[in-house]
Design a protein around this nucleic acid. Sequence first.
DNA 1: TTCTGTCATTGGAGCGTTCCAAAACACTAA
DNA 2: TTAGTGTTTTGGAACGCTCCAATGACAGAA
Lengths: 344, 344
Amino acid sequence: MPASSSPAPKAGSSVTLEMVAARAGVARQTVSNAINSPELLRPQTLERVQRAIDELGYRPHRAAQALRTRASKLIGYGIRPSLAGAPTPVLDQFLHSLSEAADQAGYRVVLFAATPGDDELGCYQRLLDEHGADGFVLSGTDRGDRRQGWLHDRGVPFVAFGRTWSGRDVGDWVDVDGAAGTAASVRRLAGQGHEKIGFLGWPKGSGVGDDRARGWQTTMRELGLSVRGRRVESLDDPASATEAAERLLAGGATAAVAASDTLAVGWYQALRRSGRTPGPDAAVIGFDDSPIAPALFPALSSLAQPLDAVGRECMRLLLERLGDARRPTEHVLLAPTLVLRDSV
Amino acid sequence: MPASSSPAPKAGSSVTLEMVAARAGVARQTVSNAINSPELLRPQTLERVQRAIDELGYRPHRAAQALRTRASKLIGYGIRPSLAGAPTPVLDQFLHSLSEAADQAGYRVVLFAATPGDDELGCYQRLLDEHGADGFVLSGTDRGDRRQGWLHDRGVPFVAFGRTWSGRDVGDWVDVDGAAGTAASVRRLAGQGHEKIGFLGWPKGSGVGDDRARGWQTTMRELGLSVRGRRVESLDDPASATEAAERLLAGGATAAVAASDTLAVGWYQALRRSGRTPGPDAAVIGFDDSPIAPALFPALSSLAQPLDAVGRECMRLLLERLGDARRPTEHVLLAPTLVLRDSV
DNA sequence: TTCTGTCATTGGAGCGTTCCAAAACACTAA
DNA sequence: TTAGTGTTTTGGAACGCTCCAATGACAGAA
């Protein structure tokens, strides 16, 4: 392989189809076919062309392909500023699995800065007008999110990490089953004898938060446990969470399920103020399995989101949609896994 | 503006230069000039063309531009899997500011999955061969990182978030001054009367970790404080960190500077085991100001990295490099800011 | 042998842009 | 009026690829 063993393999190789064709002694188009429709070639020809491709280290010029096929093979991801207080799951893992899945399908993920409210849709529009993306992946969907409807109306393929929480349920999505997660937490705590299990949640109105609350509530009912006065609300910061947790404790709760790890921290601190420590008799389970969880003392049990799977599934759905715009919409709900540590 | 007021503005507009030209009553090339070299046009013509562009909502087709100008206007970012234990700062903020800065310059950031070791350089090669990026942004640079040298040898523009820790110092970089950060921490603690200030670090050999250790060490010396037996090493997990912190405490340390927030957690737990609590008489300052810091009790003081500025500077250096490949290399060192909370 | 159909391969055209060199224009000096 | 200058505008070509329709090769059937 001269291409890889030469001392300084130049950058931006600039090997073209024509060069490969010349080397293999065939026409330009035949090389193109070897790559895109190998079944059209005689095996013998195919092999000859393949060898020429390998020897020259040829790779198709993406821009030329994009221009001709009218497909950029790029997936747009509007990256929002990370607001403190917003339930932003750790993104890098998601983005990594997304990119990996995209790569395998010959796609790439292209980022663009998009701030909610600040003409966010305009950013999507711009990328589309430039033919800079064939489809989009959304994340951080919430009530009143206009992106799904907007994209749907324009017939743009997309998939969301997060359900359509309000409005028409349009488009494919992948989500983590928050309700199933908190349900599992409740069962776990109940299995350890807890009956007064509280819920530390965000203010009502956020899709994600309400879903997690629902899992707690329905499971409590299923188990015949009372939810009266057992649900408190707080913003996603330790100070407010502590106050909220104190209300829970004042109500006699012996355990809690939290909508986030930060909220679970409130339980820790409320206990501490009354001279106690989280553990078997004052248990709590968080959500997201963020870096906070193993850092707390005692280490916080939490629900880990299967971000790798989410990324893969997002890309799978999007690719199917790109292949067939008319196929029925598909929804994927993945269960989080309970990571048990010392807080239960 | 008919384009924006029509009921269903189609996606992938497909307005071409030719159409704009027809509407403005000029030649194709004139429209191109209006966009790329407006100073060539007569003001009157320019205005007429501008109006046609606005009315039709024209945007150049990126692929066509890329093909003709041989510049993709894309910046590659090889996203590595987030390994637990590795000092991976919160990436989304960095990526956001990077994207934002790129957008403003007419560039976009394209992600590709690249796993260190697993033919990582091959991934860079592939993107280059496809003409899928004009330059790269690296992050997570460390000792023995081959990426900088590899890119440099091929004359590929790039900028690193993180210094060249070993080998030839090639290429532009932006970094956070870890030594300055830990130095500030030491000064702060010394100012509160502490003299036995320990350092909770990672095993020697990591560029980032050694830099942070250096700031502690030189400042201790400057202040005439002994460092003998005051430096301990640990992996970046709470359990090992606790053991390490205990050694520090056994040596009589009354305060500590940690190379990461996770390591600072070790100090918390070691204190707790001996029935004490972090605070004025057993202070500690972490690094990175991760979500862990405000979640701990008492809240952990930490050094926040100016990730927005890092992203902006990275893009600035890269754009300058793209504009002039031969200009001398430039290094930018940004100071972290000490976020004071209750642990001091 | 010639015709027909199938399969494998080919050349021309065009995707939307910018480069380039030439043309048109305006305006002054001869 | 004509030539000479500089400014403004233009058409053709090309970037590298794939679409498309046409060609050649080669078999079996007439």
